[in-house]
Design a protein around this nucleic acid. Structure first.
Length: 598
RNA sequence: GGGGCUGUAGUAGAGUCGGUUACAACGCCGGCCUGUCACGCCGGAGGUCGCGGGUUCGAGUCCCGUCAGCCCCGCCA
């Protein structure tokens, strides 16, 4: 027996969350999903849910026996439409926990538009469900208010960004998804070409080259909210396909780009959260960020800055420290204020933590009430050395000093990450505190010992600082880049640079990176040619939209801000992608399997 | 490629030292109930203890392997 009704000519008059005391006495027509049915034998209440909220329907057997009879058969997640009169709830039955709790709809007519199987989990924010089940039934998970709220906020942010960029003269231009694999960067997703057997397109890691070419074409300002693809392993904040707010501008310097973009971020925070940001945002050079925080994405919500003491300990009696300095490494400390009470177990945990980042150990000093050092390494230091270290660290009784001695890289990374861990552990970082900082003057190139060549820190098209241009010929590793990252609470949310618009400089960069003239011609010839036809000075930036939404919504996982995300093994539990294909499909593509799965 | 955590009705959990028929909750089904709102009361159904192997008289429990989900390192210009 088919128990459902047709929609007919009914038109919805309101979203559920919109009915209010202003509508009392009015007839409304609502449509949505049955959140819950409370059957009192006589009266039946139904909480009707749509994307906007929940409204209580009241069905009285005396008033409308027909609608009441249908309501008896209704179950959770049935799709229903009702017509009825908005009325004030009787005295004492107002529900202050509901946005629409002062009113209800006295139903006169009810249509069951569709039935529903019992869902595998309750459509409630409080329901604690394993993520693999949620992902398999993603369309049901997305009905939950919190997830739906994230997606709705994401939409509003996209609109704000579009409006802002439109108002500032940016043109939305689409760039190819089927494009060419280029060296450098992440692993590409490849798409075989049927028409050109044996050749492959690559999905874009970003529209980098195309947006630069659009500057050469004279569009002046470009933007796109666009999917990018990188075939690398996933993390809580990383998906193989993700969305960038991608921008490029001509005839600008770094300052112009940062000014416009922080205005955009400020508008996003105003529209999305009602928070006014203070502009301009703060700045740190890369060198200063590394020195003070050990990382290039510092969380500025708390202090706990790192202090380098290499010079103070290079001749000290503690051989571990002295040897590291003699071997070209550095010694740094972190003063965990007031943490002298940490237990043996807590200190062991911290040591285990830094080992993840390649550290061999972690030395500590607990400062007693009388200022004396309680530490396994105290005996190696003279009183004078202790005083110097103490004053460099701003040491007070009750503090805990944590020392790291290793290479520049390991010391900074392990102590920098430890700083973040302590900030969290000590509750120093509030989720609703938003600290932005631009990191500037990144190194242009980095020496890769394995492949024995320079690699671009940002990307191969990033311009060096004007004053560092001569260094390319002498000490390329020392050259700094016209690059900038925007960091929010320890997360990089965007990054960009002024690009090289001079063909000779671009060629020089390629050769420093061990890309010969022939290879450069083959891989990037179209860009090099374009630069020779009057390329304007230009630069740009890209923001990670997913990460930005994570921070705005306080989400711990990027999957909570993407409608249909992938698992850590890059599969979709709902569609079961990736999947097998027919031999015929492969034959058409001139592809043969090396491995048969399953 | 590596390290760690988790896996028991639809859901999320308990399950002691290896010992009778694997528990109670939410949800579901049936009944009762005219002002509830995570309604209430009574009754009921529902299990490949992720999967495979081993140890044992006996395994949800111990061992080995494997699969899946998650977190991290490497990787991510």
């Amino acid at each position: 027996m088919n128990l459902t009704d047709i929609l007919g000519d009914w038109k919805r008059s309101h979203y559920c969350g919109r009915i209010s005391t202003a509508d009392i006495g009015r007839e409304v027509c609502l449509m949505g999903w049955v959140q819950r049915r409370r059957d009192h034998g006589g009266l039946i209440f139904i909480d009707l849910r749509d994307r906007d909220g929940i409204a209580q329907l009241a069905l009285d057997p005396d008033r409308d026996p027909d609608a009441h009879g249908k309501a008896e058969r209704v179950r959770g997640e049935f799709v229903v439409a009702v017509k009825g009169i908005v009325s004030a709830r009787p005295e004492g039955t107002v529900n202050p926990k509901m946005a629409t709790g002062e009113v209800e709809v006295e139903v006169r007519e009810l249509r069951v538009l569709n039935s529903a199987q019992t869902p595998p989990f309750m459509i409630e924010d409080y329901a604690d469900v394993a993520e693999n089940v949620r992902l398999k039934y993603r369309y049901l998970d997305l009905r939950r208010p919190s997830l739906q709220g994230n997606i709705l906020l994401r939409h509003r942010v996209s609109q704000t960004v579009r409006n802002y960029l439109n108002d500032h003269g940016f043109i939305d231009i689409e760039t190819p998804i089927l494009t060419k694999s280029t060296p450098e960067g992440a692993r590409d997703y490849l798409v075989p070409s049927r028409v050109n057997p044996g050749t492959f397109y690559a999905l874009p890691q970003s529209p980098q080259l195309f947006k630069q070419l659009l500057m050469v074409s004279g569009f002046d300002r470009y933007y796109q909210i666009v999917k990018c693809f990188r075939d690398e392993d996933l993390r809580a904040d990383r998906q193989p396909e993700f969305t960038q707010i991608d921008c490029e501008m001509s005839f600008v310097d770094r300052q112009d780009i940062m000014d416009i973009m922080e205005g955009m971020i400020a508008k996003v925070f105003r529209d999305a959260l009602g928070i006014e940001l203070t502009l301009p945002m703060s700045r740190l050079t890369y060198a200063e960020a590394m020195a003070r925080f050990g990382v290039d994405n510092p969380d500025l919500r708390f202090g706990l800055e790192l202090v380098e003491i290499s010079a103070l300990v290079k001749d000290c009696g503690f051989k571990v420290f002295a040897d590291v300095v003699a071997g070209g490494g550095i010694v740094k400390l972190l003063n965990a204020k007031g943490c002298a009470g940490f237990s043996r177990k807590e200190l062991d945990d911290l040591t285990e933590f830094v080992k993840i980042y390649g550290a061999k150990g972690l030395a500590y000093v607990k400062v007693q009430a009388d200022g004396s050092w309680q530490s396994p390494i105290a005996k190696f230091f003279t009183t004078e050395e202790m005083d110097r270290i103490g004053s460099a660290a701003g040491l007070e009784p009750g503090d805990l000093l944590l020392f790291m001695a290793d290479t520049w890289k390991v010391t900074n990374e392990s102590l920098g990450r430890l700083r973040n861990l302590l900030g969290q552990k000590l509750g120093l970082a509030r989720k609703d505190d938003y600290r932005f900082v631009w990191i500037t003057d990144f190194p242009l190139l980095e020496w890769d010992g394995e492949t024995r060549r320079h690699v671009a820190v940002h990307h191969p098209f990033t311009a060096p600082l004007d004053e560092d241009l001569p260094l390319l010929a002498t000490e390329p590793g020392k050259a700094r880049a016209k690059a900038y990252d925007l960091v929010l609470n320890g997360s990089e949310i965007g990054g960009g640079s002024i690009r090289i618009h001079d063909r000779d400089v671009q060629n020089k960069m390629f050769s420093l990176m061990g890309i010969g003239a022939e290879e450069a011609e083959e891989k990037f010839g179209f860009l090099l040619n374009a630069l020779a036809y009057g390329a304007p000075p230009h630069g740009g930036i890209a923001f990670g939209l997913d990460r930005l939404i994570m921070l705005l919504t306080g989400s711990d996982s990027i999957r909570d801000v993407i409608a249909f995300p992938k698992t850590q093994k890059a599969t979709c539990l709902m569609s079961e992608a990736p999947g097998e294909v027919d031999d015929l499909q492969l034959r058409e593509l001139s592809i043969r399997r090396a491995i048969r799965s399953k």
